[in-house]
């Protein structure tokens, strides 16, 4: 294991907005999890900061919301899980990001 598990991770959007999320939440994305746990010392592992030059701020925000949404409900057995609302104009970009992040 490369870095000791961090509490939080900083995600930076294309516009330079920083989102600080829990390590656990960030790991909902397989890509991010790999980035943080890969062998060797990539800059991401060392700094705990990941730049996403191709993801815009609103999309990254939506993604962070989804991380927590997923974390909250993935093992839930509750019947009425609220729908995760996505605005139609965001949908395409979000889809691309989710493909990129393997979420």
């Amino acid at each position: 294991m490369a870095a000791q598990p961090r509490e939080t991770v900083k995600l930076v959007s294309a516009e330079g907005f920083e989102f600080i999320v829990d390590y656990k939440a960030a790991c909902v994305s397989n890509t991010i999890r790999n980035m943080l746990s890969s062998q060797g010392s990539f800059t991401e592992t060392e700094l705990g900061t990941i730049n996403f030059p191709e993801i815009s701020t609103p999309i990254l925000e939506k993604i962070c919301q989804y991380f927590y949404y997923k974390l909250r409900y993935q093992n839930s057995t509750a019947r009425n899980i609220p729908e995760f609302k996505v605005a139609p104009e965001e949908a395409l970009e979000l889809l691309m990001a989710s493909n990129f992040l393997d979420t």
Binding site: M35, G40, S41, F42, T43, T45, I50, N51, F52
Partner: peptide
Amino acid sequence: ASGLSFEE
């Protein structure tokens, strides 16, 4: 590998 950006 240090100095390489995984994301990039």
